[in-house]
């Protein structure tokens, strides 16, 4: 199995380290033709406006949509914003390009400037112990529509992860905690897609 990490900007190296620790072949993706031999793709955290602009400049938008139509894709934080169909209007995010893959609504900077970064232990279905999650300028997962369903919530009910078939989004950063269980979860999704 070969998993790519979109390496336009952001914490792509951290995802690569996590994937390699799980024994997976990896690739940094900077140009659309590098998507060709991948089984799945991670869109990392970073500055979502920067990632979006670089994706447009290097004609990534249609190739990424075509990739998602067949393969597994996981967006963390900025990647979650990028994969969303709708961005709310409370936060900012003007002229931000969106892939519009998943039926979710997200809100940028919705937790407020000072409190949008925090740590929390998440209770996840199928995990035998809580997952230590780091939220960094986290976007808010406002709504999952259609086939998309929320799979993890904070204690106060705030949605922080959603899945729609072979697509996954998390508003937190499993690549920063050294805990590989979400990466394993994604690899299983990719495996199931291939069958």
């Amino acid at each position: 199995m070969k998993i790519g990490v979109l390496a336009l900007q952001g914490a792509f190296a951290e995802h690569i380290v996590m994937l390699q620790a799980l024994g997976v072949e990896t690739a940094e993706v900077r140009l659309p033709d590098q998507l060709a031999d991948l089984d799945g793709l991670i869109i990392p955290g970073g500055e979502s406006t920067t990632i979006g602009k670089l994706a447009v400049m290097y004609n990534f938008m249609e190739p990424l949509r075509a990739f998602a139509a067949e393969k597994g894709m996981w967006g963390t934080c900025a990647g979650m914003i990028f994969m969303a169909k709708e961005i709310g209007t409370v936060g900012t995010g003007r002229d931000q390009p969106l892939l519009g893959i998943m039926d979710i609504v997200v809100e940028r900077n919705a937790f407020g400037r000072q409190v949008d970064s925090f740590e929390a232990d998440l209770i996840v279905d199928g995990f035998d112990a809580p997952f230590p999650a780091v939220f960094i300028r986290a976007p808010k997962l406002v709504e999952a529509k259609g086939d998309a369903r929320v799979i993890v919530r904070l204690e106060d009910g705030t949605a922080v992860a959603a899945q729609q078939g072979r697509w996954l989004v998390t508003s937190f950063h499993p690549e920063l905690t050294g805990d590989g269980r979400f990466h394993e979860y994604f690899l299983k999704m990719v495996e199931d897609t291939g069958e």
Binding site: A7, L8, Q9, G10, A11, F12, A13, E14, G45, G46, E47, T50, C77, A78, Q114, V115, S117, F118, E119, A120, V134, I136, R137, L154, E155, D156, H173, L176
Partner: peptide
Amino acid sequence: MNNEKGTSSFKIKAGLAQMLKGGV
């Protein structure tokens, strides 16, 4: 969740900077 003044952990502060990587 821990957002009170003075409790912003080093992991969060360093994590903020990690999101800037590869950027200008």
